[in-house]
Design a protein around this nucleic acid. Structure first.
Length: 974
DNA sequence: GCCACCTGC
DNA sequence: TCTGGCAGGTGGC
């Protein structure tokens, strides 16, 4: 890769051909249900191999439609002699499609065309868009498509061995140019397809003729020159047949398509989807193989938590089922009845009607997605659309959608793939329903992108007032469905009720849809009918969702008013909404993981864990479950008689701080501490992260929650990439597995230095603290010097460590008890430290007092950017509750302002990276740190941007400092 | 589904 | 009175 640009690779699989080959190559297997699976097995094997070796970025699998094609119109006997599909095979086509669904690969077939023609067309389109194209088939005909950019791989014997043909390969094997393969067939025919050819002309004669003249037409033009009277005669007599045969053998490369290359984007599959499919098919060896790839060390056992494509419905129906089993409480029946009554008010429409449904609405419209609980992978099941007076649910997963061809004109708001901008647009033709079959393409899977076009257009239409709930989920999910919005900021003009409600009530955690509605319209009848609908599956749920959308549409004005009246509008519009775009991009892009590195560390850990386990059993004199705190407590405090330092509600505490106190007395306790550390790494980080890697991209895509924490921070889940170990070297090593996604790229990490203390200095205006930051001394050393009343040069490392704990304690609203626990010193000693601190930093004490006073007066606390957190407990008569609220009043402005600051920095950084046309991509945010990957040549520029965006994010009365680190892995960026 | 525990900032 | 803020994931029960 000279220029660092990786050309996208389009993989085209000839589904019918490969399944046929596999059927005859693999012994006839059947699963325990008696269904034959051998062809699907071979097919799956081939897919795994090709993914592994080729790493395609785009994939399509083409199938024959099994009916008459245009070839039958020109030659009735076409494929006339072909044997019927064996019954043992025919059932496997559907299985193969199901498997492709799980792989999240697009497959397609067309009314009037064979799989060959679809492949021919897509290969041309791919080639024109400067893709590398690879075709997998068992059919030599497809060799005619081979070119500089297109290779054709023929299955050998089995299905796993592929012979790859480039132009030179074709010439070597057949002494022909790829395109002459057609002429070859024109002359010699093809018995299997019942293509006649010229009687008496076989491969050798045909090749000789083509060698000399080049094509069928040229041969016929020069019949007179041909030696051999018999051959001459035959060619004369059958020249029509030769031309017809050539035509039959010619792959059509202009099939009208309604999809774009972008629709074929392959982003990898979810391990659990594919393993579930393999489990159903009982492909045990493939199960092991696909797990090995991902480095899964142990079998995933969470069957109950298994993820379904229809996650929403699935969960709901399971619940409903449990209800019925549990004796069907009559409340549920009554709610069902209630739903029945409101059913008339809601229309359920099919996807075909989407455009017309959208057109029928006027005024502010609410748009709700159904089925996006895990939006990286879930399929959009439907969408609810509503205005104040009307509600419609449009089904998207309806099975009938695949039966009909759909063709929509291109939509302005819809994006065209980057590659298509370069001239690779797919042929496009409007087709009305009466002419279905006249060449329109029926997309089996990614009808979505095209069919959703009216919805995307609506979402991107700046002239339409809208309200949605979690626009980021929409963006990530639409991307996964192969839809990109062309507008840089689609949804920007749509009110995002998730973010709006969060700003209004951050203290209560992530708002649900009902919270958003109820906060704006307290009298909305959510508790009865709408919650009831949610407990049902299928249609009742759809009706419920549509009614929620209706209420949400009515909530729009009120929510905007409330945001404005609380001065939250700017935070909403200038921070949270722009940030949601940045986060969506980060989530979609993901971070590359070196799975083998992770596995290698896991293997080392496994060995030591095994040794530790045995040693612990030996020291305990018995085997027990070390992971069970109950059993461990009994061993330590009863059997071995160690002093129980602390108790929990349920028994002895065995937490690390307790064990650390006991360690000097007992070798076993030391071993247990190490065991705990290593098993934590193994289960949470090695196994947990491996489970989350997507194949074959080898990336992890986390979800950042933007509307969850009480302070305004982000959180990260599935997996959490904000708590990857760093303190202990054993855990820190894991960061070696976080690598740049391209060769020659670097990881750049930038973290704020002492950001919370700087914010405290700003808020308190404490002279000594401000001075410490203005002069750039080490703040913990300065604190130690003050608290312990010694010159800075005489501060010992112990004093600095203790001062650091005091600093953190102050931020969190410390007590002498807490500090004493933390530093393992007496309470009196801790109390003296705190007193001394406040004596030396009096501004800090007065800030703390003022923060509590503000909270008591207003009932909430706020950050520099006006982010609010309600503190109802501030007036509580319960000491604990009140104290907690007071500590929160002191801490939240600090932690929350730090959150505001890095959010602004992220938005600015994203803008600058884009404005400068840099390839650098933001990968992660870890509260006070940003991690970016970029080509080595961009490191300097990116570092400057990061430092500047972060340091200038919010102007404080003390300077902000950012530390920058560059490395080949996250570990090295330290 | 809660608890205890451990990881991060 | 009973003890420092904010998170997410795992395993046991």
């Amino acid at each position: 890769m000279i220029d660092g640009f990786k050309r996208p690779k389009l993989l085209l699989i000839d589904g019918n051909s490969v399944l046929y080959r596999a059927f005859f190559a693999v012994p006839l297997l059947s699963n325990s249900q008696g269904a034959y699976t051998n062809a699907v097995y071979g097919f799956a094997q081939m897919i795994l191999n090709v993914l592994n070796q080729e790493k395609p970025t785009h994939i399509a699998v083409a199938f024959d439609k099994g009916k008459a094609t245009f070839r039958h119109q020109i030659y009735e006997a076409y494929k006339g002699k072909r044997a019927k599909t064996p019954p043992e095979l025919s059932g496997q086509f559907e299985m193969a499609r199901m498997l492709l669904d799980q792989f999240r690969m697009r497959y397609l077939e067309a009314e009037d065309y064979e799989a060959d023609d679809l492949i021919g067309t897509l290969a041309r389109v791919g080639e024109e868009a400067d893709f590398d194209v690879m075709i997998v088939t068992g059919d030599k005909d497809l060799l005619q498509l081979v070119s500089e950019r297109v290779t054709t791989c023929l299955t050998k014997k089995g299905t796993t061995d592929l012979t790859r043909y480039d132009p030179a390969g074709v010439r070597e094997r057949f002494s022909l140019d790829p395109l002459q393969v057609i002429d070859l067939k024109g002359l010699m025919g093809d018995a299997s397809d019942n293509i006649p050819g010229v009687p008496g002309v076989g491969e050798k004669t045909a090749i000789k003729l083509l060698d000399e003249y080049g094509s069928v037409e040229a041969v016929l033009d020069h019949i007179d020159e041909i030696s051999g009277a018999k051959l001459k005669e035959r060619l004369r007599e059958h020249c029509e047949l030769a031309l017809l045969s050539k035509r039959l053998a010619t792959i059509e490369r202009d099939v009208p398509l309604t999809l774009t290359l972008d629709d074929l984007r392959f982003a990898g599959f979810a391990l659990e989807d594919v393993t579930a499919a393999f489990r159903t098919l009982e492909f045990k060896s493939l199960l092991t193989r696909v797990r090995d790839w991902q480095g899964i060390l142990q079998e995933t056992t969470q069957v109950g938590g298994q993820h379904s494509l229809f996650a929403g419905d699935d969960t709901l129906s399971t619940d409903a089922h449990t209800y019925r089993e549990g004796g069907a409480p009559s409340a549920v029946d009554e709610r069902a009845k209630e739903i029945e009554q409101i059913r008339e008010d809601v229309r359920i429409a099919s996807l075909d009607e989407l455009s017309e449904v959208i057109a029928s609405f006027e005024g502010p419209i609410a748009i709700l997605a159904d089925g996006l609980r895990r939006y990286h992978t879930d399929r959009l099941a439907g969408v609810a659309l509503a205005t104040a007076d009307r509600a419609v649910y449009v089904k998207i997963m309806a099975s009938e959608s695949s039966e009909r061809s759909v063709s929509e004109p291109p939509v302005d708001g819809m994006a065209v793939d980057r590659t298509l901008d370069q001239g690779g647009a797919l042929p496009h033709r409007e087709t009305d329903d009466s002419s279905v079959g006249a060449g329109a393409l029926a997309l089996q899977q990614n009808a979505f992108a095209r069919q959703l076009a009216p919805l995307i257009e609506l979402l991107c239409d700046e002239t339409r007032e809208k309200i949605v709930f979690d626009a980021k989920a929409w963006r990530v999910a639409l991307h996964a469905h192969g839809v990109e919005a062309a507008s840089a900021r689609p949804f920007a003009h749509a009110l995002d009720a998730l973010l709006g409600t969060y700003l209004l009530r951050a203290s209560e955690g992530a708002p649900e849809l009902a919270d958003a509605i109820l906060y704006a319209i307290p009298e909305a009848p959510i508790p009865e009918s709408l919650y009831a609908a949610r407990e049902q599956s299928g249609e009742p749920y759809q009706i419920g969702l549509a009614l929620w959308a209706q209420w949400l549409s009515r909530a729009r004005e009120a929510m905007i008013e409330q945001l404005k009246s609380k001065n939250l509008w700017s935070l909403y519009e200038d921070v949270e909404v722009p940030l949601s775009y940045v986060l969506a991009d980060m989530e979609i892009y993901g971070v590359k993981i070196d799975a083998s590195r992770l596995k290698a560390i896991g293997a080392e850990l496994a060995i030591e864990i095994e040794q530790l386990t045995n040693r612990i059993y030996e020291l305990a004199g018995t085997e027990f479950n070390i992971n069970s705190t109950k059993q461990l407590g009994e061993i330590l405090f009863e059997r071995m008689g160690l002093p129980p330092v602390k108790k929990t509600k349920t028994g002895y505490s065995t937490s690390a701080d307790v064990l650390e106190k006991l360690a000097p007395q007992s070798e076993m306790v030391t071993e247990i501490l190490r065991y705990r550390m290593l098993t934590k790494l193994q289960s949470t980080y090695i196994e947990g992260l491996l489970r989350e890697i997507r194949w074959p991209s080898s990336r992890i895509h986390t979800s950042f929650h933007q509307a969850k924490t009480a302070t305004g921070r982000l959180s990260s889940e599935e997996p959490n990439l904000q708590n990857i170990p760093i303190r202990m070297e054993e855990g820190r090593r894991l960061r070696h597995a976080f690598v740049p996604s391209q060769d020659g790229w670097k990881m750049v990490a930038a973290d704020y230095s002492q950001v919370e203390l700087r914010i405290m200095a700003h808020l308190s205006r404490d002279e000594a603290l401000v001075d410490a930051f203005m002069t750039g001394v080490d703040v913990h050393t300065r604190t130690a010097s003050q608290v312990f009343d010694v010159p800075e040069s005489e501060v010992t490392s112990l004093m600095r460590r203790q001062a650091k704990a005091v600093n953190f304690g102050i931020i969190y609203g410390i007590s002498d008890f807490g500090l004493s626990q933390n530093l393992n010193i007496s309470r009196a000693q801790a109390g003296a430290f705190i007193e001394q601190y406040f004596a030396k930093f009096p501004g800090v004490r007065s800030y703390m007092d003022q923060a509590v006073k503000f909270a008591k007066e207003h009932g909430y606390t706020e950050t520099v950017l006006g982010r609010r957190r309600d503190l109802p407990g501030i007036h509580s008569r319960n000491f604990n509750e009140r104290s907690f609220a007071e500590r929160t009043a002191m801490n939240t402005p600090i932690q929350g302002t730090a959150a505001d600051m890095i959010k602004v920095a992220m938005i600015r950084l994203a803008e600058r990276l884009r404005a400068d046309g840099l390839e650098a991509r933001m990968l992660l945010q870890v509260h006070d740190e940003l991690i970016v990957e970029c080509p080595a040549r961009e490191v300097e520029m990116v570092s400057l941007h990061m430092a500047e965006a972060m340091e200038q994010a919010i102007e404080l009365s003390v300077p902000l400092r950012v530390d920058l680190h560059v490395g080949d892995t996250w570990y090295d960026a330290k």
